[in-house]
């Protein structure tokens, strides 16, 4: 069963077609990158997959659950249980420490577990920074806290929106290495990026243009 299945998905904002007739699926353990220039519909698609927005037409299924007719409460539950989100701007809570930022995700999911949260920070190489506030961490460190938070509830799908967009070269490498590690461990990753060198790390690249799938490419082969 596919982790993500999108069938005939379109999104309209007034007369603007942000996405048109999108159909594809993502299998467990796959790394897919969604690429495209600014305004191509990447972020809109990420919002649909992350259940933060609803398509105008079509279906989005997460781990076999068809989501189009679900209430916003139910969508929040599915997002909480199935999806881990990593943002370009990190979005950490400024008054909570790195450890507490990870525990917030546990708090809204089930039960905060300090040891588990500390282990997640250790997993991303931040053992010694758990008591630091976000402002005391570098951009790369903040992004790694964000990845630890995304992983803490064992999501079926990791959604990353330009995760290296705000990082310098060194930190970009650290974060991408981390994603590669996660992928090798079997995590399913969908990463939105405009950087070709980042997109090429994925097993499959989906290129969007004007809200439509322009190209689907696997290494050495163009499928569409």
């Amino acid at each position: 069963m596919s982790i993500l299945e999108i069938t005939g998905m379109s999104k309209k904002y007034g007369s603007l077609h942000a996405l048109q007739d999108i159909t594809f699926s993502v299998e467990p353990g796959e790394w897919v990158s969604i690429m495209g220039s600014s305004g191509s519909g990447k972020s809109t698609m990420l919002n649909m997959i992350g259940l933060m927005d609803k398509p105008s037409t079509g279906e989005v299924s997460i781990d076999g659950i068809v989501t189009s007719s679900l209430s916003s409460k139910k969508l929040t539950e599915i997002r909480r249980d199935k999806i881990g989100l990593v943002f370009q701007q990190f979005h950490l809570i400024p008054h909570l420490t790195a450890l507490e930022n990870v525990m917030v995700a546990q708090y809204y999911h089930s039960m905060p577990d300090e040891k588990e949260a500390a282990a997640a920070l250790g997993r991303v190489g931040l053992e010694g920074r758990s008591r630091h506030l976000p402002r005391q961490l570098s951009g790369g460190e903040q992004q790694r806290v964000c990845i630890a938070r995304a992983l803490i509830n064992y999501p079926a799908l990791i959604l990353a929106d330009e995760p290296t967009g705000n990082l310098d070269e060194t930190n970009e490498k650290i974060v991408l290495d981390l994603f590669q590690e996660l992928h090798s461990e079997g995590h399913t990753i969908i990463m939105v990026t405009h950087a070709p060198e980042v997109g090429e790390l994925a097993e499959r690249q989906i290129r969007l243009e004007y809200g439509k799938i322009r190209e689907i490419r696997v290494p050495g082969k163009i499928l569409i």
């Binding site: 409460k73 929040t76 997002r79 909480r80 809570i93 400024p94 917030v104 809204y108 999911h109 938070r149």
Partner: peptide, 16 residues
């Protein structure tokens, strides 16, 4: 606003 939005993304319901 950002903190609230983030909490919603992390699974916080309006009631919480």
């Amino acid at each position: 606003k950002q903190e609230i939005a983030l909490k919603k993304v992390l699974g916080a319901q309006n009631k919480a």
